[in-house]
Design a protein around this nucleic acid. Structure first.
Lengths: 169, 169
DNA sequence: ATATTTTACGTGACAAGTCACATAATCTTT
DNA sequence: AAAGATTATGTGACTTGTCACGTAAAATAT
């Protein structure tokens, strides 16, 4: 009994240490923390949600875009952007129009006001990126991105086939 | 006009390439893709949600734990675990009891059935981890984890203070 | 010993993200 | 050109995750 009580916290610590090297968990925690930081900065700078900010940024950098184009750039689901647009139109950040070349597409364009809001928010958000680039050297970013590339390829693969499963084929 | 039409796709491509090196976005996309993969594997193996699986895993590895301990191990919010428990009790995976040493704490323990479910699901999930460790060498994992450590420290810092802001102090 | 502060847990309200499906438009085949 | 397949968008239903707050218990300070 006494022994059990003494060993238990050790198991917790051991488990904690072990999970520190779990890439799935670490990556998830890091990116969620990053999301929280972005949300806080956006809140301090104004009223934008994360998706709204990403839309403004893309439009400011690349001109009018369709929903699908933004989804591709942001590596996210089109539904997320699709849902953000009506609110952004209502707030006067963007306008939508049916594309002339393809009437399925909806062209989203920045208004002058939307551009102003982008500029203001951009102050905080580019400071963030600048601070990050003081944290990681170019080479380190290269390494990081390459590891992320491979990780992403891994998790997007249909199923990580096991050696045994392969043998059974 | 013709010019505008020709340059536009280039801007999209340029923006895409540029965003490929955005650590915030890449990390987020990678970890969300990882979550989707885990969800699919859990679905194919049974009925567990991600949180339920993590709870079973922790309990199987480290014995009875409190909500807070599991939250720490998983680097997640206690609310997530707190909400998962009642369902797991109902399904017979775990039992809860008020801790004898601290009556605020609720000790969560695996039932025999919970252990069975863990074992079954574990087949798929450890195959996943095994496949990942064939993708990254030990050294690469070390590098990856170290970069994640630093990234996490960055996003968890109060606010990335800019050099100008520092000067103004 | 009592008052204050901290900690553990649960919960409502919300944000972010995914999936599957519906609809309309475009593209391909034949 | 008509039929069939593909693509762009919108939307309902759902999961994951965060935050803020309330309550009760424990720890600390006076």
């Amino acid at each position: 009994m006494t022994n059990q009580i003494r060993t238990k916290p050790d198991k917790v610590k051991a488990r904690l240490l072990e999970q520190n090297r779990n890439l799935f968990g670490r990556l998830s925690a890091a990116s969620l923390a990053s999301r929280v930081q972005a949300q806080r900065m956006l809140k301090s700078a104004g009223e934008l949600s994360i998706t709204e900010w990403r839309v403004l940024w893309d439009l400011a950098e690349a001109g009018p875009l369709t929903v699908t184009e933004m989804a591709a750039i942001q590596r996210t689901d089109h539904a997320l952007i699709s849902r953000a647009i009506p609110g952004m139109v209502r707030k006067g950040y963007v306008t939508t129009s049916v594309s002339e070349t393809d009437r399925r597409q909806s062209m989203i364009a920045l208004t002058d006001f939307g551009h102003e809001v982008f500029q203001e928010t951009s102050v905080v958000m580019s400071a963030r990126r600048a601070a990050l680039s003081r944290t990681f050297s170019e080479d380190e970013v290269d390494t990081f991105i390459e590891l992320i590339d491979r990780f992403e390829a891994f998790v997007e693969a249909p199923l990580p086939e096991s050696p045994t499963a392969k043998a059974a084929t």
